[in-house]
């Protein structure tokens, strides 16, 4: 079952060849790999973009996608393909690990007034990077002794716009304690919740493609990176590249947190596991050169 084209004729979807060409292209651009089981998912979205752009055939759309000078169609396509699912305080034990174990150790290597840099990549619609903000302010007593920089990045510009706006309905906030919800959100007349402006202003949001070495080059000097639930969408080569980029983004001794089903031991030898009471995370070796 394909979706409807403009003229109302049901399309049969992409042919096997078209699908193969499309997924190669998309993989090369983003590192995301679609296996056969994802065919319907891909079909639906490509056909929708074809409808919006007025392309009658896949071939026509594909040409447009590839030669589109400002990359806006590619961005729109990416925005429709990404899986943005996320929520506040997801895998909370890692935030606990941050404030109870990682940060005290990092702070031990610094002096009061120094900067601590934390990167949430991918941050999707903002839940993760704001969770970091709440956690630091609520549960890390030393937060006032340091300048903490929080940066959230994602490839999806529509998700980033939602993050900037910071408005959420019930579902993504379900795991938040009532006190946190009251302290850091404003309740809107329609019942949704908006992250306070002071918090939104203190977080920097940027668009970045983790697979592009030129785009990621400026991201340096992080003490901690949260890279959760992204590597699962990549294949081996893309994971290796991602690990290399994250390695360069971290300071020696810096930590990286992955999603609960992602294991560095299956990806790359660049990092060493570090076990804390709350979680196993990965560390860039102290002796690693910059």
């Amino acid at each position: 079952m394909g979706s409807e084209l403009r003229d109302g004729v049901a399309s049969p979807g992409l042919s096997g060849e078209d699908f193969a060409r499309f997924r190669e292209f998309y993989y090369r651009k983003t590192g995301n790999w679609f296996d056969e089981a994802k065919r319907y998912y891909v079909d639906k979205r490509v056909l929708a973009r074809m409808g919006i752009t007025g392309c009658d055939s896949f071939r026509e759309y594909f040409v447009r996608l590839r030669f589109d000078a400002d990359g806006s169609e590619l961005q729109a396509l990416i925005n429709s393909m990404t899986v943005n699912e996320t929520y506040f305080f997801r895998e909370e034990y890692q935030f606990q690990c941050l404030v109870r174990s990682m940060l005290p150790e990092i702070a031990g290597r610094k002096r009061p007034g120094d900067t601590i840099r934390i990167w949430s990549l991918p941050c999707s619609s903002g839940e993760e990077v704001y969770s970091l903000a709440f956690y630091l302010l609520e549960y890390w007593p030393q937060v006032d002794d340091y300048d903490v920089e929080l940066i959230g990045s994602d490839i999806d510009t529509a998700a980033l716009d939602r993050a900037r706006e910071g408005i959420y309905d019930r579902r993504p906030v379900h795991a938040l304690p009532e006190a946190v919800l009251r302290r850091y959100f404003r309740r809107l007349p329609d019942g949704r919740h908006q992250v306070l402006e002071s918090i939104r202003d203190s977080v920097r949001l940027t668009r970045v493609n983790l697979q592009d070495p030129l785009e990621t080059r400026a991201y340096r000097g992080f003490d901690v990176v949260f890279c959760r639930n992204l590597l699962i969408y990549f294949d081996d080569a893309a994971r290796r590249r991602a690990a290399e980029t994250l390695f360069d983004a971290l300071k020696p001794g810096g930590y990286i947190c992955l999603g609960h089903s992602e294991f560095m031991s299956r990806i790359s030898s660049l990092f060493r596991p570090a076990r804390f009471p709350e979680a196993i995370v990965y560390q860039k070796p102290e002796e690693a050169d910059q």
Partner: peptide, 16 residues
């Protein structure tokens, strides 16, 4: 305690 530095470097991927 939370600081945002927009101007200190060319973080966003736009420079390319």
């Amino acid at each position: 305690p939370l600081v945002r530095r927009d101007a200190d470097d060319n973080l966003p991927g736009e420079e390319r």
